[in-house]
Nucleic acid binder design. Structure first.
Lengths: 226, 226
DNA sequence: TTCGGTTTGTAATCAACATTACAAAATACA
DNA sequence: TGTATTTTGTAATGTTGATTACAAACCGAA
């Protein structure tokens, strides 16, 4: 793979905007690259070499497996998002993996240690990265608050709203989302059971807030969801 | 307040260990300082000058207020912990404040902008700080997972276990925690109602796992809580 | 030491949602 | 094209814990 292409993937990521061309080339040397298809498992948290990944194309889910083998979705990663050992410390206790939700998933990665060294050389990158992790923190806290104080239906609406505003091309009130999730996925994300999720989705359809099918979700007026 | 004393407060914080004496003195110039008593409100998130705080003594709680005026405890801050605008971005939407839980609370603070500049000059500080925020992220994620998959009693036990191991002086199996929380506080932390929290505390007492009163909580064998 | 506010103990009722189970529909695939 | 597998729809039952309400205990301050 040409260096040219490699650093192109980073070039248009906001996190790396502060780096100059030459600095970017330096990062390119430590980059890895990988392609995957729907259903494929991309990474395990217990890998020997801790990495940070950047999703360039497609969508993936981060699934965590507990002692009893129960799986919960921890995160949905969209194009342009980072995942992996974001906290810069390998966590031996957590057991999670990433799975491609769409075909044509492409990711690149760098070793944790290399990334750390780069940040030591470029404090502004470190600062940007901290803000990025801070944003993640804010999001998780937000989910946490929702889980405490909102019922399942509100959580579903909030989730759909967030999904629509994040995934959609433009910022119109009417949005069609490319639906790469099953109702089971959605149930896990909003922390409810699958039958409840199904019931609620049908309710939202009856209320005219969404048109749902396996391929796409049409939201006539995004503002009605919030 | 003497500079001497001021940087002493930072000197023994792990985050600032990487800084040299002269660098510490530099940070001292931007430090603020404040004392408070139990029940006092220390900071609001909507302050004009965003700050990062360091709790040197005592305990405080971070309370978030939602649209309906409902209060939820977001965090319990212990001695040596940082709080405030940890994400390095001021969040206008969140409405939260910090309240002293014990007498003799003392905190110091620095302006967000000054802290950022310092990190730009000292990349190793920036890296340490990033890891610190990462740790916060890990904790919140952990709470989230508990809330999803464990029942209220398990959450109470886990909370007591964490509290004991974090607050206790030594690492013995038998621990007496200085109880600066009401049952209402505890209820909010483990995300349940106050009556339920009371019921569960009594249950744990009957099971001999804890001895509870308003002053202290005695845990004969900490390992039985997990 | 007495009074008022706060914290804790307890019980009755109720709601949201989990669980389980199974059928129908859609999709993958051989 | 037919069959297996996954996903979705639906209903019956059960359970955790919220809510409400009130009394008892405790604590701080006058």
């Amino acid at each position: 793979m040409y260096d040219e292409l490699k650093y192109w993937y980073l070039r248009d990521h906001k996190l790396f905007r502060t780096l100059s061309m030459s600095q970017l080339k330096q990062l390119c040397m430590i980059i890895g690259f990988k392609q995957a298809k729907k259903g494929e498992i991309i990474y395990f948290s217990d890998s020997e070499t801790p990495r940070v990944f950047l999703l360039k194309r497609g969508n993936i889910k981060i699934v965590s497996v507990d002692e009893n083998g129960e799986e919960t979705i921890k995160d949905i990663i969209q194009k342009g998002d980072l995942f992996g050992e974001l906290t810069l410390e390998q966590d031996k206790t957590s057991n999670e993996f990433a799975m491609a939700l769409t075909d044509e998933v492409s990711i690149c990665s760098f070793l944790l240690s290399d990334f750390e060294n780069l940040m030591l050389k470029h404090p502004d990158l470190a600062l940007s990265y901290t803000k990025f992790v801070g944003l993640k923190l804010k999001r998780v806290r937000n989910n946490y608050t929702n889980l405490i104080s909102k019922d399942a239906k509100t959580r579903l609406k909030t989730f759909l709203y967030d999904w629509a505003t994040r995934d959609a091309k433009d910022s119109e009130t009417s949005v069609a989302i490319d639906n790469y999730l099953t109702q089971n996925d959605i149930a896990q994300i909003i922390c409810t059971s699958r039958p409840t999720a199904t019931k609620l989705i049908i309710e939202l359809e009856e209320e005219g807030l969404i048109q749902y099918n396996r391929k796409e979700i049409v939201i006539p007026n995004i503002n009605l969801l919030k």
